[in-house]
Structures are given as C-alpha cells and as structure tokens.
Amino acid sequence: MTVALPVTPPPGGSFKDHGAKDHGAKDRAARPLARSLVSILRGRRGEPPPEPAETRVDIHRQPLRTAPDWHQDMIALWKRHPTFGPGLHEDLKSKGLLPRCVILTARDGGPLCFRYIGEPTRRVFGDRWADQNIGRPHLEDVHSAYAQAIDAQYREAVEGGEPVYNHLVITGLPRPPVNYRHLLFGWSLGHRRQALLALIDS
C-alpha cells in the first residue's frame, strides 16, 4: 500500500500568493499581453484567449520500496555510479532508461540547467519548450509555479545524497491534469559541479 506524505506547501504559502506578492500591479497588468503572446505562439490567433488558470503542483513523498522494478533498476545503477561520469550515460542508454530522464547540471555555484529532457516531459510541455530550455536554468522555465515547486525536491536530492521519490499532480496547465511519479538522484562535487537526474514513470 502506498503511503503518501504530502510535501506541498500549505495554502498560506501558496504559489499564487507568493506570485502576487512578488510581481505586483505592474506584472498583473502585463499578464493579458503575455497570454495573448502565448495564444499567438500556439497558433490560436483570432481565438479568444483561454481562461487564466492557476498552476498547482501537489507533491506527495513516496517510500522507495513502493517504486516499480524498473525504478529499482535505476537505484542500483545510481549506486554503481557514485560519480557523475561517462559510464552513467552508457548504462542509462543500455538499460533503455535515458529517454525517460530529465537531467540538469550546475557549475560553480550556478543554477541547475537542463541538459537532457526525455520523452515524458516533452509530451507534457512540448518539443519546442524542450528545445528552448536546453542549457537554461530550470527556474527560468515559463511554467514558473511548477519550477518553483519542484526546485526544493531537486535540491534535496542533490544535497541530501539519497534518492527522492514523489508522486506529483499538476493542475492548471493548458491540458488535463498531469499525474506522475518521479525518482530523483543527485551528484555533487561541492559547489563546483552538481547534477540531478529525474526518472519519470508516465
């Protein structure tokens, strides 16, 4: 039986409130323009803009023992690679796990940046989004609520030295709710280099 431990911030500290506090009236005024731009980029010129939606990310911590077998394979692989080195790339490929991964790296104290975005994530956010975000900090992602919510999980995996297993439900995207589990692994060479691998089950 899966034990779900909610790690989503409480309503008092929701991303909606956080965003309103940070952005202020100027950004609120700019949002209709931003939505129009999004509509044009999505090829919906002339159609009314979609109703504004609040992106919400619910994250529930899962015990590792509930992970499926192929996630357990990844745990074994992570243990075989205490350093983020060339053998990891080859092993992920040979096990067929690479296409299900998102990989980010950071250097010299900088932010975690996308280096590889696998198929599950591309299906949700789109190929164009993936192409545009390679090499860019994940916190600059246009899906800012999602990025902010998931950043703490990434940090925990990188700095904690243990895999992190979560069940996530994302609502408010311009598509049906997204429901998936991810298994996060981190590597760190102090502040010089850090790496995060997310294995996604959907």
Partner: peptide, 15 residues
Amino acid sequence: ITRFDRTADAFEAAM
C-alpha cells in the same frame, strides 16, 4: 570535473 562536464555534454548531445 572533466569527467562530469564530458558526461553532461554527452547527455545534451544525445537529446
């Protein structure tokens, strides 16, 4: 660091 960067580049090239 060299191995790390080489690996990260390999992942990016594989996408």
